[in-house]
């Protein structure tokens, strides 16, 4: 029993070490020269554009549902006019970035994990390496940088669509004009709501890309490993998102909400 625990811990520690080495190799390859611009743009399209619909629908429903859930309580407190502000602050600060990141973890991290895992199994990564090309630069650097750029953009789009969902929900029962609703939303937000959310979604994007690439690139050889890499990428990336969020909230509170 004790031996199993020790072996488990040793394996876990080795995994942490391997991730640090992988991070160092990624970081070194960003500045190694010969950046793969065309692959980076392709990945931005694959990651950003192809996830937009999913993020949009989810954010729309979240905005709609939040207003429907919040309304009775706020009406009871006589604060129905606070609905746009409540939705805007909660959505921009927390719900938008986290929901977008979780959706992207499910869609992007799994797809990167499966794609690189399958390339590993079919020896495509080895083929790239023995040809003298740099698979890290072509496959890993481009994907991680693309997720780090596209997840914040998706988050901003998701926020806008979520607020629009809230506007429609509000008009189911009340009547509020589009300009008044959005003026109230914007007026309730300031720099300290917007900036930390964007910054933390850059880290969410990085975690999604990094975990997906690490799991896929280091998967074992065998078809089963592809599934394991994809599954493990989603679980680990989701955990990282909540972990980063917890740290980001602490830092934001210290810096902006003293």
């Amino acid at each position: 029993m004790a031996e199993q625990v020790i072996t488990g811990w040793r394996k876990w520690m080795l995994g942490i070490g391997e991730q640090c080495v992988f991070f160092a190799r990624f970081f070194r390859n960003i500045f190694a020269g010969g950046f793969e611009w065309s692959e980076f743009v392709r990945q931005c399209y694959e990651i950003g554009y192809r996830s937009m619909m999913l993020v949009g629908i989810t954010s729309f429903i979240m905005g709609l549902v939040l207003i429907l859930q919040l309304r009775p309580s706020l009406v009871e407190l006589g604060a129905a006019s606070m609905l746009p502000k409540t939705l805007a602050v909660s959505f921009i600060r927390e719900i938008g970035p986290v929901i977008t990141a979780i959706i992207c973890a499910g869609k992007i991290a799994s797809s990167i994990g499966a794609e690189l895992g399958s390339m590993k199994v079919t020896e495509q990564i080895d083929a790239m390496e023995v040809s003298g090309a740099n698979p890290l630069q072509y496959l890993v650097v481009t994907r991680i940088l693309a997720t780090s750029l596209m997840v914040p953009l998706l988050c901003i789009i998701g926020d806008a669509i979520g607020l629009f969902g809230g506007f429609l929900a509000l008009n189911f029962t009340d009547s509020i004009s589009f300009s008044l609703y959005f003026n109230k939303c914007i007026a309730s937000l300031d720099f300290s709501d917007f900036l930390p959310a964007v910054v933390k979604s850059v880290f969410f994007g990085f975690a999604i890309g990094f975990v997906g690439c690490y799991k896929g690139y280091n998967s074992n050889k065998g078809t089963e490993s592809v599934g394991i890499a994809a599954n493990s990428a989603v679980v680990t990336a989701s955990l990282w998102i909540f972990f980063i969020d917890a740290i980001a909230v602490q830092i934001t509170s210290l810096l902006f909400y003293k």
């Binding site: 079919t122 020896e123 495509q124 080895d126």
Partner: peptide
Amino acid sequence: FQSGALYD
């Protein structure tokens, strides 16, 4: 490579 290892 045995499989050809073409980039699919």
